[in-house]
């Protein structure tokens, strides 16, 4: 049976510690299964380091570790980056360029959603996106996770992984679905990638061709030639889906695609409002219905 993403992450961490490449840092790591079951049951002597609850300081402590080794840093909710990011972005990401001292960090930042309030919900990769020196990926499959880790081991960068807890049970690889004479091409990031497939199947029944481009590399934004060809030849606008607010990564990537093809690319992400805890106040990644409506708007039906 194929391994799930959860098992792949757990294995990656275990191997990282066993090979003594660096320690794994985070909060509440020793609490059983707290980090969505992605952390092996190990102790400080094995290199699993529980930090205090001082988020801003913790970001800095891991940067210090990055000057010495190759640490993995687990941020339990992506929203906690509002506290964790400042020293990572302003020191680790600049260290090699300014002082010629690399400061690699593998940041596992976990997106969650559904009744968890105004800060901790969804993805927040846009906090990092605008700054130089950072690399950002959003792995949703076991192979993508392995690819991200291999990149980290072979390079000296700060690598931000925009993870999403709802992908952890996934064991399948997600491949691009690029149709000839497509009506609409969807570029999807993070958890929205799973919705994109459902949308494709829905519109297929209506004889509307939807193509899917899976965005794994967010920064640098790695654009495949075939994506551009499909977008150029598509009948209507493109659509980019994100699990973050659209005034950040989503619009920036859409701009890059438009610049290269002269085709309009719309964006859909979290709504431009605060999230609350109740279901009626939640602000989630674009669901099937929102995407379906947006596609209808695009094809003007």
């Amino acid at each position: 049976m194929a391994k799930t993403l959860r098992e792949t992450i757990k294995e990656t961490l275990r191997s990282h510690l066993k090979k003594k490449i660096g320690k794994v840092y985070g909060q509440c790591l020793n609490a059983v299964d707290w980090i969505e079951g992605t952390v092996p049951s190990l102790k400080e002597k094995d290199g699993l380091i529980d930090l205090s609850m001082a988020d801003v300081a913790n970001g800095g402590i891991v940067v210090g570790a990055g000057l010495i080794e190759k640490p993995i840093y687990i941020i339990r909710f992506q929203g906690l980056n509002w506290f964790n990011a400042p020293i990572i972005i302003n020191y680790a990401c600049k260290s090699k360029e300014i002082w010629n001292i690399p400061c690699p960090i593998f940041i596992r930042s976990i997106g969650m959603e559904g009744s968890i309030g105004p800060v901790t919900g969804s993805s927040h990769h846009s906090i990092y996106f605008r700054m130089p020196g950072i690399k950002i990926v959003s792995p949703m499959t076991p192979n993508e996770y392995r690819k991200a880790y291999d990149y980290f081991i072979k390079n000296e960068d700060v690598l931000y992984l925009s993870e999403h807890s709802k992908s952890y049970n996934n064991s399948k690889e997600l491949t691009d679905k690029l149709e000839k004479n497509t009506d609409v091409i969807i570029f999807a990031i993070s958890i929205t990638r799973f919705q994109a497939y459902k949308i494709k199947n829905y519109f297929k029944k209506l004889d509307i061709k939807i193509s899917i481009a899976n965005i794994f590399w967010i920064k640098p934004f790695k654009i495949k030639r075939k994506w551009l060809e499909t977008l150029k030849n598509s009948k209507f606008d493109g659509l980019l889906l994100d699990d973050d607010y659209v005034d950040g990564t989503a619009k920036a990537l859409a701009y890059e695609l438009t610049k290269k093809t002269k085709k309009n690319v719309r964006v859909l992400g979290l709504e431009d409002r605060s999230a609350g805890f109740s279901r009626s106040k939640d602000n989630l990644s674009p669901n099937f219905e929102r995407i379906r409506k947006e596609v209808y708007k695009i094809i003007k039906k």
């Binding site: 800095g60 402590i61 210090g64 570790a65 010495i68 640490p71 020293i87 302003n90 600049k94």
Partner: peptide, 19 residues
Amino acid sequence: GHDGLMGSNGPIGVGACFA
């Protein structure tokens, strides 16, 4: 070197010392 955020060298130094 220092990044310009006052006191950031506190946690960074602690992390480097720990590692």
